[in-house]
Amino acid sequence: MNWSGRLKRAKSIDQQFDRLVANLVRHGLFSSPFDMDEFLSRFQRWRGRAIRLEPMPVGGSADGLPYGMLISAAGVDVVFYMPGSTPLHREHIIAHELGHLLFDHASDLAAADLQRVLFPDLDPETVERALKRASYTTRKEREAEAFASAFLRRARYGDRAPAPNNAVTDVHSRIESAWGQGGRRGR
């Protein structure tokens, strides 16, 4: 189900994603207290498609890799997360990748990232030619991040979820614009 078109009706970006999460709640996908494994089980049944969580098989340095990665294959969506992530960070990574699923974002993973994680023994140029992929757009990443924030706000606080702090969001956006996004790419 692609929810990108539904985003345009809300007044602010935070309202847009809060509405999407409220829709997931209405469909009975959130348990109380929240449990990510239970959510994923319900989400799979609701979508009629399997989701598998896998630690990224990083056989060495993880420098430059994204924290998470989504690969949709025949009959299953695989969410990779960085091994050693804290439980809260792991949930954020999963929620971010679920955002990509819900918005039907095309998988634009950089071939170099896929090559390093999935095909460490293959020549990078061979993988690049086979995949012919580009990097994520800023819009896609912002949508997935905003969804992850709204998702986890609801998961942690339920109906008592505090309103997003627009002042903090504005400052974060200005810092990102001025300094660019450093560190890991994508997530």
Rank of each mutant, 00 (worst) to 15 (best):
L122G: 08
F151Q: 01
T137Y: 03
F151S: 00
Y157V: 09
R133I: 02
D121H: 13
A155Y: 10
E141Q: 02
R156L: 09
A130C: 09
Y157N: 14
F103C: 10
D104L: 09
D104A: 11
A130P: 05
H105K: 11
A111Q: 10
A130Y: 05
L114A: 06
A150V: 05
F119S: 07
T137R: 05
A134D: 13
E145K: 05
R142Q: 08
S107W: 05
V127G: 05
L122K: 15
D108S: 06
A150C: 10
P124A: 10
F151M: 03
L122C: 14
A112C: 10
Q115L: 08
A150M: 08
A150F: 01
D108L: 03
D108A: 04
Q115Y: 10
L109P: 03
L109I: 04
V127S: 06
L131Y: 02
P120S: 02
E145P: 04
A112D: 14
E128I: 04
E141W: 00
A110G: 07
L152R: 09
A144I: 04
F151I: 00
Y136W: 15
R116H: 08
E141D: 01
T137E: 04
E125D: 15
Y157H: 15
A134R: 14
A112T: 12
A130R: 11
R154C: 04
P120I: 02
